[in-house]
Write a protein that binds this DNA or RNA. Sequence first.
DNA 1: GCCCCCGCTGAAAATACCTTTCAAGCGTGA
DNA 2: TCACGCTTGAAAGGTATTTTCAGCGGGGGC
Lengths: 305, 305
Amino acid sequence: MKEIFAGAAPPAPAALAAKVRTLAPSMTRSMQRVAEAVAGDPAGCAALTVTGLAELTGTSEATVVRTARLLGYPGYRDLRLALAGLAAQQQSGRAPAVTADIAVDDPIADVVAKLAFDEQQTLADTAAGLDTVQLGAAVAALATARRTEIYGVAASGLVAQDLAQKLLRIGHIAHAHSDPHLAVTNAVTLRAKDVAIAITHSGSTGDVIEPLRVAFEHGATTIAITGRPDGAVSQYADHVLTTSTARESELRPAAMSSRTSQLLVVDCLFVGVAQRTYETAAPALAASYEALAHRHSPRGAPSAR
Amino acid sequence: MKEIFAGAAPPAPAALAAKVRTLAPSMTRSMQRVAEAVAGDPAGCAALTVTGLAELTGTSEATVVRTARLLGYPGYRDLRLALAGLAAQQQSGRAPAVTADIAVDDPIADVVAKLAFDEQQTLADTAAGLDTVQLGAAVAALATARRTEIYGVAASGLVAQDLAQKLLRIGHIAHAHSDPHLAVTNAVTLRAKDVAIAITHSGSTGDVIEPLRVAFEHGATTIAITGRPDGAVSQYADHVLTTSTARESELRPAAMSSRTSQLLVVDCLFVGVAQRTYETAAPALAASYEALAHRHSPRGAPSAR
DNA sequence: GCCCCCGCTGAAAATACCTTTCAAGCGTGA
DNA sequence: TCACGCTTGAAAGGTATTTTCAGCGGGGGC
């Protein structure tokens, strides 16, 4: 896992707020205080030295440096540079206005606006935080895979199915599994050149980790799509793709934004694979479209208004 | 000199290139070399230490510091921070290239950016085009429904399942159907006070329209979620919720953006229902969360590194 | 034409800042 | 209750930045 992180995370430019949210759960109390200060006032913190930030957050220099490391920077110096960049970006217009939580008595129009905004934010965070090297490697593995098995339960199960559906449409052998027992028995049959993908927001869903572990130990290439790259699932993943974590609330379960984030990652995988296998993918897409045409009413497309 | 500058010039944020040009005439040869390097490649210079920049420009540390002072910063450290900010601004500035279609040879990073942007656009369009009156009526029907049946096939089938999962979590009786035959036989059993929802992007998917028609004729309240409000499905829908239609391309099937749009609508329905039934929904959500806790490894986050 | 003065320049010392180490404190599970 | 392991901050250690200072080169006066 060490190696994964070492190779994976070049300093993040704008994805800092997202990264803080992603990693916050795995932080200690003092580190969270530092991370919070940093995410809350990038400009202000960029002006401070290690000692200054340590005093501001009531911690020590060592803790500040540790936090910087956890966020993926070599040290505080580099975090500070990124902070300055972030501050400049925020300054120049697109200020990420903090959206209020959805309340019980919000009118329906507000609900629509808030949900749409939150999901847009989630997409931006995910795109910013996605490691394109890992993504590229995952795409390469998928493009040359003999077959692909995807494991996910509950909300992540739907994402798994979505990916399977798409890959099938471009002629790839792919299947999604929601049943943990069947998933494990399926994983046993995997070999090198096969690909296994686990999708879990928490990174610690046993029912999904287990099949990935089995696949990993049988020599398959394994990919984890998770909101917690430091979670247990990453142990058995050759490639880790990180989804963003938005704050949740009572009326807005985590499943909602994690799903949005996961779907974006899955779409990226799909498009990547389609690009790499364009010769076969393009005709396959066209053919599947053709095959479904008769399922729609004869005048399938009523004239546009 | 110290005092003069300290009082006079607050650090310049983005006007650095201009400042370099303005002050260039008053600079000595070595300082000009430094200033030139800094103005020419802010990002590159931001990555260098004093010593590095001195070597790069063939000068000494002292000269670099002097140049920084002349540009209005207390020292090189602060110039470097400003440089990082400038680099970040330039970076984020050249973003609007993402509106183009995804091409076969796009690098993976572009794919991520374009997909994220497109989906954000889809969300905005959907939110803008959603009829809150219809939405409110649909929510009202769902909130008081005895049970809810949701019909959708292929990609829309996953959206149907997503909604069913969510409604179940707050104690509503909901079920999603992908099998057209079972869907029809299920629709036959519906009565008044039951709700049927059809999800179809094209608005003309026979396999989904048929069960909705049956439900409609049996007196259930019917809702259509479709990208074509003038399509055949609307005939049998008491409430029509319109999803947005983004342009598609060879590598970006319509299913992708329609799914994003449909999910937003479904989330709005869910949150609306949760609001209206808050008394029972909140405890139910908490309980389902609790019930799943043991499915995750005891300590979700192994210690860092 | 030669010499002296002035200011630019870089090497090295001095300082500030960042990083690492280590032992004490604290919470946690047995 | 005790022991263990993780978290934490103080202080040592190292690196980057700043300052100092002496050398050097050019330009003008004699």
